[in-house]
């Protein structure tokens, strides 16, 4: 599904990623944990193709095809979804309008007909119910005046509507209380399947109690310094990053 090979990337000329190797097979959920400044968010932006995040070495293969040189929208239409750490506000654009454009852009790419307004509304309402979101959010402007938790829920809602094959969740747990965290995790788990994978970026082990990963990686200084099973997250929680980084050095 996703193969990251010796990935080096710079931001403003500064090297942030220094040789990442990571392979996610179809159906797997991987967690990437690490201290602040380790390059977690940079990794998610590089995967999504954000301007200003320059790959200087290595390659990223998605479904066997290199992502380098593809525009962000091309990657998105191919099934790569990024749940933002800080979702962006778009004044005046109704959530429903925005999401329907997105859904239809992806459908068009896959050779499917546009989803009509009725079907869209029906599908959206069902997903919102699942996430315990008020239907009023459909008519509100994208992320405008949403609380931190509402924004994160809205990201997961978009993800459920777009049905990506690879979902990257960038600190989706931050700003969520425990109830919201459970709901969001259930949403993510609902999307799990043999053809879908996820890369969960998080600071805390807490989220991984609910979204149980197949593999856990520790990112520090732009490299993956340790890889293990779900127990590694517990170990990190107990010992702290400093010890693991010291062990790996």
């Amino acid at each position: 599904m996703l193969e990251i090979k010796n990935l080096h990337a710079t931001v403003d000329g500064k090297e942030i990623l220094r040789g990442i190797n990571l392979t996610i097979k179809a159906g797997e959920v991987h967690a990437v944990m690490g201290p602040n400044g380790s390059g977690k968010s940079t990794l998610s932006y590089v995967l999504a193709g954000r301007d200003g995040y320059e790959v200087t070495q290595g390659d990223i293969l998605f479904h066997g095809r290199s992502l380098l040189g593809l525009e962000p929208e091309e990657r998105a239409r191919d099934g790569l979804f990024l749940a933002f750490q800080y979702p962006v506000e778009i004044p005046g654009v109704a959530n429903a309008t925005f999401l329907r454009s997105a859904v239809n852009a992806v459908r068009k790419h896959r050779g499917l007909a546009d989803m009509d307004a009725m079907t869209f509304l029906k599908t959206a309402k069902a997903k919102m119910k699942q996430l315990q979101m008020d239907e009023k959010f459909l008519q509100r402007a994208v992320n405008m005046g949403f609380s931190g938790g509402e924004k994160k829920r809205n990201e997961v809602f978009q993800m459920l509507m777009l049905e990506p094959t690879l979902a990257i969740l960038d600190e989706t747990d931050s700003g969520l209380d425990i109830d919201a965290l459970k709901i969001v995790a259930e949403g993510v788990n609902a999307l799990r399947g043999p053809e879908r994978s996820a890369l969960v970026i998080t600071h805390y082990q807490r989220l991984l109690d609910y979204i149980v990963p197949d593999v856990v990686h520790v990112l520090a200084g732009g490299r993956i310094i340790k890889t293990g099973g779900k127990d590694l997250a517990l170990e990190l929680e107990a010992k702290g990053y400093a010890d693991i980084i010291a062990d790996a050095a």
Binding site: A48, A76, R77, V88, L99, H109
Partner: peptide, 11 residues
């Protein structure tokens, strides 16, 4: 804003 929209598949 532009990146957010494009990440959702909009040109």
């Amino acid at each position: 804003q532009l990146f957010y929209c494009r990440q959702r598949g909009l040109s």
